Simulated assay, not measured.
Amino acid sequence: MSMPPSTLRAKAYKEAGVDIDGGNNLVQRIKSMVGQTHIPGVLSDIGGFGGLFKPDVGNTESPVLVASTDGVGTKLKLAFAWNKHDTVGIDLVAMSANDILVQGAKPLFFLDYFATGKLDVDVAATVIAGVAEGCKQAGCALLGGETAEMPDMYQPGEYDLAGFCVGMVPNNDIVDGSSVKVGDTIIGLASSGVHSNGFSLVRKILDQSGLQGSDIFPGTNNTVCDVLLAPTVIYAECVRNIMRDIPVNSMVHVTGGGFYENIPRALPAQVKASIQFGTWDMPPVFTWLLQEGKLTWPEMMQIFNCGIGYVLVVGNNHAEDVLNRLEAMNVKAWEIGRIERFGAKDEERVQVVFPGESAS
């Protein structure tokens, strides 16, 4: 039986390590899952040179586009080691969707980039299924993406992920922290665990501990694999529900840099955040990292989210309502601090008050 012309034409490329047919097969595999993420405004299917999206601005006055891009980082190393690829796509969407949510934007669409040395269609399809699931959770469309097969660029069985999310917010509704005032309440929303930051340190501590992916993680009934690869929470649905009825003065995605670097990004110059440590439930993974890594809680909060993945700053008169609404949506949240006046120049913009200490 003679080979089809397309196979003959691609023979030289395949011998160099790039399987065009495999890439085409992947596109066919993921078409249905991508289609499940389509929302009003999507005008194209995957496979074109660009994704088409027509936003419905309705009566929106001065709509503003908000965009963010990110990857998953070295958390992928654990996905490779444990051959578990179904959650990292959710992480990928979460990192960008949560970032644009901070400014009040509704996520509209997402595009992904998957790069590998040799394409494993099953692994790639599993990863992209996670991306599609993340888009569903964020309420946005998976509008397109790119799969790149690059021999010799990656170790066997490894890949890299990147993506970006575009959203929209009315100009008058942009959340920029300018309305934050002394006395406002800081509300922390629970994380699912480490999310997608600090994994270079996590992996170092894990190696030193001797724990394997199939072991039960200390303090839990789950495996080490499930605890450390738990996907990042996407907060779009619950936060946008709050914003429909309650003014939110500022928001923070607690990502790279933990509390000390992320919270000041959402505060005006004249105030600081006073965080009362111990006012929220601490997931066992962070206590384990603290003990195994011989770290201090200030060090932990510099690096990790420590159980708080997202922060809302609201007027004190709205705090109880926000907490009640989040509870009704089965979202764990706590009042974790207050906004105070920023004083001396050498004072930190985030003050974490640990048990036995008093706020200055």
Rank of each mutant, 00 (worst) to 15 (best):
N25R: 14
V121C: 01
A141M: 08
H318S: 14
R265A: 05
E146W: 09
Y235D: 07
S209K: 11
K332C: 00
I303N: 09
P5Q: 09
L323R: 07
L206G: 03
G198S: 02
L101V: 03
V88Y: 08
T220I: 04
N324S: 15
T116I: 02
I216T: 15
L26I: 08
K84F: 05
K54W: 08
T7K: 15
V271R: 06
F114G: 07
C140T: 04
A141N: 03
T185G: 05
M300Y: 12
I20H: 06
Q302D: 12
M168N: 07
I128P: 06
G47W: 05
S96N: 06
S200H: 12
E347M: 10
M3I: 11
L101E: 06
G257Q: 02
G89C: 02
T116C: 14
V57T: 15
V64Y: 02
L312N: 03
G17C: 10
S358G: 00
G22W: 11
V34G: 03
I90E: 15
I242V: 11
C140R: 02
G48M: 07
L43G: 01
G307L: 04
F277L: 00
N324D: 15
L326K: 08
K84T: 08
V34F: 06
K75E: 02
P63I: 08
D120E: 08
Y113F: 08
P231W: 09
V131R: 03
D56S: 13
I336R: 13
D21G: 02
D281V: 03
E357M: 15
I39M: 13
V350M: 09
R29A: 12
Q291D: 15
K14N: 04
